[in-house]
Design a protein around this nucleic acid. Sequence first.
DNA 1: ACATGTGAAGCGCTTCACAGCG
DNA 2: CGCTGTGAAGCGCTTCACATGT
Lengths: 182, 182
Amino acid sequence: MGHISSEQLAGRAGVNAAKVRKDLSYLGSHGVRGVGYEVEQLRYEIRLALGLTRARRVAIIGIGNLGRALATYPGFRQDGFRVVGLFDNDPAKMGQTVADLEVESVEDLVAATRDRGVEIGVITTPADAAQEVADALAAAGVRSILNFSSVVIRIPEGVDVRRVDLATEIRVLGYHLHRTES
Amino acid sequence: MGHISSEQLAGRAGVNAAKVRKDLSYLGSHGVRGVGYEVEQLRYEIRLALGLTRARRVAIIGIGNLGRALATYPGFRQDGFRVVGLFDNDPAKMGQTVADLEVESVEDLVAATRDRGVEIGVITTPADAAQEVADALAAAGVRSILNFSSVVIRIPEGVDVRRVDLATEIRVLGYHLHRTES
DNA sequence: ACATGTGAAGCGCTTCACAGCG
DNA sequence: CGCTGTGAAGCGCTTCACATGT
């Protein structure tokens, strides 16, 4: 009770047990030989190493279905990511309430993200608006961007961009199907 | 006109030019030295190699905001991925029309995906329903699964699963912020 | 001149295999 | 005896650098 082995962790994560041990060893060898890892301590060590003990303020730009999905995603709040702003350029959406927040105009993006100390911007706009939004986020001093749009955005040095391309994900599956047929 | 260099392609994709050339070389060396790649031919070669010339039928299970986002995602249809089924277990959603399709009951999932020759299943359900859905998809003969749920699903040999974890994506950004402060 | 194609080197993640420790 | 911690090997992707071709 209270302990878990690298083998068990590997099973749950769908990876190799040696990888689990090597990765956890970077936290400082808190496992007990012959026993495993103490779950609560491990949880704490991981949260500490990943920086999940400090809350991060997040803004989402582009309140379509994907933006709404992220705004209401329970996994975010759990790790201390607080959505503090929702922005769109569609007048029909402004004033709508999503996840307890009112949708605001992108015109207010720079000022609002500055005022609220937003550290992470999530771009869920169509492709043609993504670069413009990224520029605004950079201008507002946002250092991290999660880009769900279908284009690669260009950003000043020092801003960290991570792209998730849903079209690519499904294309990979299509490719594997293609590889294994005929 | 009609040609593009590895340098230009690399710029657009945000990668190294040598990588572009090496990757494209696997298609069979259709570039012209001193000139570049003929755009339309390149497009065709890529579509052929990735298997995008054949249409793939897709079912989406879990019609929340994320499911709806994917159902209406323009990038899918463009590459020949046809959404032919939307499933949910919430009676209130059944009969609703999303992207020209009526939402159906998950009870009909196995029969419907078999009948319609679904090859790719997209899981956008909450964590607690994901394994059950995956089992149903596997039972229906679906060979490829795109899993957006927050759990790792266990699947019979021969089924290809690809997981996209939105929580992980934002955690990586949080980690980088953590690394670069104090 | 200019841009491709590619052998070789580089790099980092993954896995192996076993010594070390409880 | 069981499970961790880790040096070393393995592996595949990325980048370099330049020979090759037009």
